[in-house]
């Protein structure tokens, strides 16, 4: 597993939007997978590494959510409901963004990159294919970092949990993030009036992929051979 050669997409215009600059500042530091060198390479080792990484990512993603402008004004039960529905979408969108520009490899972390062969060995081929479809979609769109952080916040606000108490407050959050995306896109791509819509239209595939991933890790949990930390288990059980 080697460090990929990463190409970054350069933004054009200067982003003044307060929500977006706040989201950029709230973006978590990178996390390393640190696979256990004492374990022999196997599917169990790969899945153990991914589940451990996911658990640590979840902690920082919950911290990140609290910094989304307006999120902390929601009731605690509503904050929980959104995160319980959207946590896997957030994890996957982060993997997808890290993997942009890396030829057919999934960058779970800087020190943990998977190609098709490695995904197959870990029993993750279907998931690999699905996530790669998202990578290709965002590669062709040339997703900017600013668009990525805003889209990630939208995925959370748009979680469609069945347990929301105050829909008006959630809708207000959705509207402010949507407005931020539109303003951002109009600065970055003034020539392309369809771009915000095109970005929003990627979200169904993200949700579908996240559902696949949750189902897959629920099966792995049932199997009982891969150790999982408490937060990851707690959120798997929320489904």
């Amino acid at each position: 597993l080697s460090l990929p050669q990463k190409k970054t997409f350069l933004g054009g215009g200067h982003v003044e939007n307060k929500v977006v600059s706040h989201l950029l500042g709230a973006e978590p530091e990178k996390i390393y997978a640190m696979p256990d060198p004492a374990l022999p390479d196997s599917d169990i080792k790969a899945l153990t590494t991914l589940c451990d990484l996911a658990d640590r990512e979840l902690v920082v993603n919950i911290g990140w959510a609290k910094h989304i402008p307006g999120f902390s004004s929601l009731s605690l039960p509503d904050q929980m409901s959104l995160l319980q529905s959207a946590w896997m979408e957030i994890l996957i969108l982060r993997v997808v963004f890290r993997s942009l520009g890396c030829e057919d490899q999934l960058v779970f972390a800087e020190d943990y990159v998977m190609n098709e062969e490695q995904a197959k060995l870990a029993g993750l081929q279907d998931l690999y294919t699905a996530i790669l479809q998202l990578v290709r979609k965002y590669t062709s769109i040339k997703l900017h970092r600013e668009e990525f952080v805003t889209l990630k916040a939208i995925a959370l606000a748009n979680a469609d949990s069945m347990h929301i108490e105050d829909w008006v407050a959630v809708q207000r959050l959705q509207d402010s993030l949507h407005a931020a995306l539109q303003e951002l896109v109009s600065v970055l791509h003034p020539e392309d009036g369809q771009r915000a819509g095109r970005l929003i239209m990627t979200l169904p595939l993200l949700r579908q992929t996240a559902a696949k991933a949750v189902q897959h890790f629920c099966n792995i949990k049932q199997d009982g051979r891969v150790p999982m930390h408490k937060l990851f288990l707690e959120l798997l059980e929320a489904h």
Binding site: H22, I62, K66, P69, F71, S72, L76, E234
Partner: peptide, 20 residues
């Protein structure tokens, strides 16, 4: 809620609400 105690605790910890 008891089932989701870690999430609950992490959300409660030192929240600094942001309202722009």
């Amino acid at each position: 809620k008891e089932k989701h105690k870690i999430l609950h605790r992490l959300l409660q910890n030192s929240t600094s609400p942001v309202d722009l």
